[in-house]
Nucleic acid binder design. Structure first.
Length: 473
DNA sequence: CGATTTTGACCTGCGC
DNA sequence: GCGCAGGTCAAAATCG
């Protein structure tokens, strides 16, 4: 595959454009056959300076990447065929339409329910010519109408695009830069983050806005004096940067538990409180994680999924949701903040608050409920709590001891913190592909240097706070 | 010797 | 278009 060749694009066109770019390896240059048979200059020394181990790593990465691509293609093809089959059934017997609905992942089902329900009620035979003709131009600006007109088409597109989105996301992280360089003008799928965002933007036009398809992040703030935080995964540091406004450097890690795993995380210490370590996870593991963290993963995944879905009705105190929130049953008070700013909606689980802070926030919930911040425009009406709607002083007293205990436990329980961190690293998989049958990932152990800094700086245009709490014992 | 970390260069998006 | 900041790459250095 040309991906192999692409790896030798050590000196891409962009490099060439840099007239004054001093190169460490500017002795000699050779032309190598680049991606898509485009000849690209590749500067190398007369004697290659690349270490053998580096090459091996590259080769493994490429192999893994290709395996992922092939797998993705297989899955997409299979889904397409399945859908096509179900579609034929549906056309033959309308009752089978329900089957199609069942076939779709939960998220898509929900989406479809809202959109196709009306159409199903007034099910009109859709002209067969338009059903699968994705090239048919839309004659209406009203996308909803368009969907209503051909729900099956949208279902199929949704399923396919979902698969593609998943791959986009995976590839996005691993090969974002490379792809954006090499795929420019080549055509085909745009794997760049911009492309992804673009897809997201398109999505919002053509479909309902789908935050889950965005490149979400999960950030965990926890007090940790330990130089390393064990979260179950193996991480390899690939970069470190000084972030603006923070004396502590931000470190960048990628998961090395499996070759080609696209999960990355950032670690930074808080400038205001050096004892607070912020770990931000991004991406989906492409490998199973130790079962130990599955428990946490299911809870955090559910929480994040709920947050991202914008659910205003979900209540983790609802017994029917108890299965989704085992963690919250155990650790009742966690402050979660959702930043909906593009390009990365970020959920921050803050485990650093003291019991009193918790209580104050809970008591003053009316002002704690998501509120518009100055200059912030994206108001996301999320509010989730398992606590009673109000918590009055007497109730506060009733809960006080438990809150203190639990919060203290959270603050001091490194296992919890670690497990939560591990779980978070897998969240995106759950939120983005919980319908793919994707297994939960749970990270386990990692080496992580302390002394890394403050909360990840996001150029938030909006944010909101959400209490994820649970009054149950 | 393989794996990991360090670190300067580079790329890209965004705001002005 | 330019500069800034965040993020990534990759060769070299270091570690075990």
């Amino acid at each position: 595959m040309d991906a192999v060749i692409r790896e030798f694009d050590f000196f891409s066109a962009n490099h060439q454009d840099k007239k004054d770019a001093p190169s460490k390896v500017d002795a000699g240059s050779k032309e190598l056959l680049g991606r898509n048979n485009v000849r690209q200059r590749c500067k190398i020394d007369e004697q290659p300076v690349i270490q053998l181990s580096t090459l091996r790593v590259k080769v493994e990465k490429i192999k893994e990447e290709n395996r992922n691509l092939v797998g993705m293609l297989d899955r997409a093809t299979k889904k397409y065929k399945d859908l096509e089959r179900h579609l034929r059934l549906a056309m033959e017997q309308p009752a089978a339409a329900a089957h199609i609905n069942n076939y779709l992942p939960k998220e898509e089902r929900n989406e479809m329910d809202g959109l196709s329900q009306p159409s199903r009620q007034s099910i009109e035979p859709v002209p067969s010519t338009s059903m699968l003709d994705i090239n048919e131009p839309s004659h209406s600006d009203d996308k909803t109408n368009e969907r209503v007109a051909s729900p099956e088409k949208n279902m199929m597109e949704a399923a396919i695009s979902k698969e593609m989105d998943h791959h986009d996301h995976m590839t996005n992280i691993v090969g974002r830069k490379r792809m954006s360089r090499d795929d420019e003008g080549v055509g085909g799928v745009d794997y760049t983050s911009k492309g992804n965002q673009g897809a997201g933007a398109k999505n919002s036009e053509d479909n309902m806005p789908d935050v889950s398809s965005q490149k979400a992040r999960v950030s965990i703030r926890a007090r940790s004096d330990a130089p390393l935080m064990i979260d179950g995964c193996q991480w390899r540091k690939y970069g470190q940067k000084m972030a603006k406004g923070n004396p502590c450097p931000r470190a960048y890690y990628r998961c090395t538990m499996a070759t080609g795993c696209p999960v990355r995380k950032q670690v930074q210490r808080c400038a205001e409180d050096m004892s607070i370590l912020t770990t931000t996870y991004e991406g989906n593991h492409n490998h199973p994680l130790p079962p130990a963290a599955t428990f946490m993963a299911s809870t955090t995944s559910a929480a994040v999924s709920m947050l991202l879905s914008g659910s205003t009705t979900s209540n983790i105190n609802d017994p029917s949701n108890s299965g989704l929130f085992p963690l919250m049953s155990k650790y009742p008070y966690t402050i979660a903040t959702l930043s909906t700013s593009a390009p990365h909606p970020t959920i921050t689980l803050d485990l650093t608050h003291t019991p009193n802070e918790h209580n104050m926030q809970l008591i003053q919930r009316p002002s704690f409920v998501p509120q518009q911040l100055p200059g912030h425009h994206h108001h996301h009406p999320l509010y989730m709590s398992s606590m009673p709607p109000t918590l009055f002083p007497e109730e506060k007293g009733k809960h006080q001891s438990m809150v203190d205990m639990v919060t203290a436990a959270i603050a001091t329980d490194h296992n919890f913190t670690a497990a939560l961190a591990a779980a978070a690293s897998s969240i995106m998989r759950a939120t983005q592909s919980n319908s793919h049958g994707g297994h939960h990932t749970t990270s386990s152990s990692s080496k992580m240097p302390a002394g890394l800094g403050p909360p990840t700086h996001h150029k938030d245009r909006s944010s909101l706070s959400t209490v994820i709490s649970n009054g149950r014992k």
